[in-house]
Simulated assay, not measured.
Amino acid sequence: MTTLQIPSRDVLKAQAKRLRGDLAERGQTISHAQALETIAHQWGARDWNTLAALATTAHAGGYASGQHVSGRYLGHVFDGEVKAARQSANGYWSLTLRFDAPIDVVASTLFSSFRRQVNVTVTPKGVSPQKTSDGQPHLVLT
């Protein structure tokens, strides 16, 4: 079995659906079950059931709509709610966060721009890979 972090079942099923679509464009048809088995083999599992079992436990602590979160966004402490969450094949999460109170996202003293909701990408540990000019992550969930 591979040492890569196994994504969620939804991500794996989406990979199988894309595989079927790509093959169909080339004139090759396979069943959804065959696509799932192929994805399982690509991830190093002997079959889909084995991979699905690993995926179930791989992301038990992920993110979900309605979940309360807190952390720092562009250096500002916040509390908020996850409005939408989607896990990518690479294990990162695409989140839409709604802050309890608006955050000024501009560092300038000349003007302000307040945001109440942002779309961010975070690692499984809740840290955005994007960084500010001083090297700090845009978002850190605590």
Rank of each mutant, 00 (worst) to 15 (best):
Q130L: 15
F111P: 00
E25A: 10
D100Q: 12
Q5I: 07
T109W: 01
N49V: 10
A53C: 09
L139D: 04
V77W: 04
L110H: 10
W43F: 15
E81I: 12
P124W: 05
N49K: 13
Q87V: 06
P124F: 10
R116P: 00
Y92K: 14
D10V: 09
R86E: 13
A107Y: 14
A64E: 12
T50C: 04
F99G: 03
P137R: 13
S88L: 14
A14T: 10
T50D: 07
Q117W: 04
S65M: 04
T57A: 07
G61L: 05
T142Y: 01
L97Y: 02
H41C: 06
T132P: 05
H32D: 15
H41Q: 12
G80Q: 01
V120I: 12
L54R: 14
Q34M: 15
G91M: 05
T96Y: 00
G71S: 10
L110Q: 15
S8G: 03
S133V: 12
G62E: 11
D100R: 05
T123F: 06
R72D: 00
D47M: 04
Q28A: 10
L23S: 06
Q5D: 10
L51I: 09
Q34V: 09
T142C: 10
S94C: 01
A60H: 07
A14I: 08
N49S: 10
I103Y: 02
D104V: 09
R98L: 09
R46M: 04
N119K: 15
D79S: 14
A55G: 09
